[in-house]
Computed example of a mutant assay.
Amino acid sequence: MHGPASPGWLLVALCAATGAYCLLRMRSSVEEQRSAAGGDALMGFGMAAMAVPAAAFTPPSWAWPAYAAVFGAAALRALWAVRGSRHHLHHLIGTAAMVYMAVVMAASPGSGHQGHGGAGVPSVTGALLLYFTGYVLLTGVRLVPGSVAVAASGGQPGWRDRPELARACRLSMGIGMVAMLLGL
C-alpha cells in the first residue's frame, strides 16, 4: 500500500498523534465531543497501523481480515449512530473505506502491501478519493473561521473542548486517508 519508507513513517506519526489526541478528547465535558472522539481515535490508530511501511513490517495473513472485521463492526456502529448526527455519516464512510482497503490488501498477491498492482484506479477507490479530497478541502475551509470564532467568543474553553482542534484532527485523518488511498 505504501511507497518510500519516510513518507510512510510520517503518515504513521500523523495518524498515531491524531489518535492519541482523540483519546484525550474522550475526557471532554462536552457530550458531543466525547461521542465522536472514540470513533476518531479508532480511525487514527487503525490508519497508523495500516500505514506502517512494508519494509519495516509485513503483517501476517490474518491481519487484513482482522482489520476488516474491526472496521466492519465500527461501520455497523456508525450506521446505527448516523440517525443522531451528521458527523457519524463521515465515520460510516471512513470505516467503510478502511474495510475496503483491508479487503483489497488481503486479496493482493505477495506481501499484502502491493495494492492494486498498477491495474488503474478502480471506481470504489476513485469515489473514496473524491469524497475524502472534498472532505479535506471543506474541513480546511471551515477550520480557519472556527479558530477565529473561538478567539472572538471571549471565553477560552478547555483544550479538550475546542471544536477547531477536533476539526484539525479530522482534517489530518482526511489527508491521511487520501494518502493511503493514493498508495493503494
Score class of each variant (00 low, 15 high):
8 G>A: 12
8 G>S: 09
8 G>C: 12
14 L>Q: 06
18 T>V: 14
28 S>V: 04
32 E>P: 02
32 E>W: 11
34 R>A: 15
37 A>N: 06
42 L>C: 08
48 A>K: 11
50 M>T: 01
53 P>A: 04
54 A>S: 11
55 A>R: 12
61 S>A: 15
64 W>P: 03
67 Y>N: 04
68 A>H: 03
68 A>V: 07
69 A>N: 03
69 A>G: 02
73 A>L: 14
75 A>F: 10
77 R>I: 05
79 L>D: 03
79 L>C: 11
80 W>Q: 00
80 W>E: 00
84 G>V: 05
86 R>V: 02
87 H>T: 04
90 H>W: 11
92 L>M: 09
93 I>R: 01
103 V>M: 10
105 M>R: 14
113 H>M: 10
113 H>G: 03
115 G>D: 10
115 G>V: 05
119 A>G: 15
122 P>C: 13
122 P>Q: 09
122 P>D: 13
124 V>W: 07
128 L>F: 12
128 L>P: 13
131 Y>M: 01
137 L>A: 15
137 L>E: 02
140 G>Y: 08
140 G>Q: 04
143 L>D: 01
148 V>W: 13
149 A>S: 11
150 V>Q: 12
152 A>N: 07
154 G>C: 12
155 G>T: 15
156 Q>P: 00
157 P>M: 06
158 G>Q: 12
160 R>H: 10
166 A>T: 06
168 A>L: 15
170 R>G: 05
175 I>C: 10
177 M>Y: 08
180 M>H: 05
181 L>G: 07
184 L>Q: 06
